[in-house]
Simulated scan of single mutants.
Amino acid sequence: MSADKPDTRLVELGRRKEWTSGVVNPPLYRASTILFDSIADMEAAEPPTDGRLQYGRNGTPTTWALCEALTGLEPGAAMTRLYPSGAAAVAGALLALLSAGDELLMVDSAYGPTRALCNTLLKRMGIATRYYDPMVGAGIADLIGERTRAIFLESPGTHTFEVQDVPAICAVARDRGIATLIDNTWATPWLFPAIAAGVDMSILACTKYIGGHADVMLGTVTATAEFAPRLDQARRMLGQTAGADDAWLALRGLRTLGIRLQRHEENALRVARWLDEQPQVARVLYPALESCPGHEYWVRDFKGASGLFAIVMKGGDKADRARMIDGLRHFGIGYSWGGFESLAVPADPTRTATTTDWEGPLVRLHIGLEDPDDLIADLAAGLDRYRAGE
C-alpha cells in the first residue's frame, strides 16, 4: 500500500500510464476478440492475467483499472474481480468456496436475494445454510459445526441495520480455518476496510455508492491472497464478467466517492436526528445513532456513515405508510440506493428474518445530495399524512 493519504489514492489508483495512454482516465475498451501477431504470442498470453490481453472476458485496461483501484482501497487485499451485479458477486464468491455437503452460516439480516440464493440454488447443490443472529459476535463459535466452511456477514444488515462485531467473528473463523465473506455495500471500503478487519472476501454492489449515479449495474469481490486463486478460477468457470462501459462508469464514480459519502452522511445525520424526535416515529435504525444495535462497533470500526437507514413507525398500518410515501415530492420510489437521489420504500423484515422480531411498519430511506431542509420539510408533510390515518 502507498504511504499517500486516502483521498490521494482514491484519485490516482488504477491510472497506470500504460492503461491511460496519456489521458486522465483509462479509455473505454470494448472488446471480445483480441488479435495476436503470431501463434507464439497467443500462447504467451496463457494463462490470462491482469495486464495481459487474452480475451475480452478476461479483461481490458478499463476493467483492470477498476480492479486495481478497488484492491488498492483494501489494505491486505490481493485481487478484485468484476461481476454483472451485486447479486452475481455474492453468488460468485459463495460458489468459489462451497461444495456439496458443506454448511454456510448466513447472517439473518442479509439482503433478500442472498437469502433466496441460499434457500434455492445452494440447497439444490447440497449446501446447507443456517441463519444466525447478527449480534452474536464471538458467540459464533458455538454455532460452528463440522461441516461449516464459510461465514457470511452483512454489516449493517439489510432493513434492520444491525452493526456486527466483524473482527470478533473473523477471529473465531480464522482460528477454525473457516472462510469469511461480507457484503460491504453500505459502507464501501472507504468507510470500512473489511479485509483489514479480518474478512477474506469483501463484496460490493458497485451499482450503489461506487457508481453513485443510478446508471450502472456492477458487482465486485475483493479477496486476500489465500482466497484469490479460488475466486478467480470460479469466475472463469462460471463465465462471469462485466462490460467495459459499466467498469468505466464505476471508475468515474469512484473518483468522487469520498466527497459524496461525506455529503450523504451529513444529510442523513440531520434527517435521522430530526426523525428521531418525531412522535410518529418509534425508532430510527441508523448506525450513527446510539439507539442502533451495534452502534458501539460502528464507532470502533467505521470511518463514517452512508445515507441509508430505516425508520420504524409508531402505530399505523401499510395503508398509512403508503399514503406517507406516495405523496413525497423529493423522494423517489424505487429499488436500489446509493445514487445522488433520495429514495423511500416500504420494508418488511419479518418476511425474511427469523431470529429477531420487529414491530410497526418500516420505511427505508436513502438520503441523497439534495438540501436536507427540503428533505425534512417533505418528510414532515409525509408524517402528517401518516398521522391523518389514525
Rank of each mutant, 00 (worst) to 15 (best):
A3S: 14
K5E: 14
K5Y: 09
K5A: 14
W19N: 01
T20M: 08
V23K: 09
N25Q: 10
P27C: 04
L28E: 07
A31S: 13
A31Q: 14
D37I: 09
D37W: 10
A40K: 07
A40N: 13
M42D: 07
M42V: 07
D50G: 09
R52M: 13
T60H: 02
T62K: 01
T62P: 05
E68M: 07
G72Q: 06
L73D: 00
P75C: 04
M79I: 14
Y83R: 00
S85N: 13
A93C: 11
A96P: 08
D102T: 11
D102W: 03
L104M: 08
L105G: 08
L105H: 06
S109G: 09
Y111Q: 04
G112I: 15
G112M: 09
L122A: 10
M125V: 03
G126T: 09
T129Y: 12
Y131K: 04
Y132I: 06
M135V: 03
G137A: 14
A141Q: 14
I144R: 04
A150Y: 04
L153M: 15
S155F: 05
P156D: 06
V166F: 05
V172W: 02
V172S: 05
R174F: 09
I182M: 11
T185V: 13
T188S: 15
P189M: 07
V199C: 02
D200Y: 06
Y209H: 15
G211W: 03
G212Y: 02
L218V: 08
L218R: 04
A225F: 14
E226F: 07
R230S: 10
L231G: 11
L231Y: 00
R236T: 13
D245W: 02
D246M: 12
L249T: 03
R252I: 08
G253M: 10
L261S: 04
E265Y: 05
N267D: 07
A268N: 03
Q280T: 15
V281E: 00
E290L: 07
S291A: 12
H295D: 05
H295C: 10
E296H: 12
W298Q: 00
F302W: 13
S306D: 08
G307N: 01
F309T: 01
K318R: 11
A319Y: 07
L328R: 05
R329Q: 10
H330R: 11
F340M: 12
A344K: 02
A344L: 02
D348Y: 09
D348H: 12
A353F: 00
T354Q: 15
W358K: 04
L362F: 15
R364W: 01
L365N: 12
L369G: 01
P372K: 00
D373Y: 14
I376G: 13
A377C: 08
A381C: 08
R385T: 10
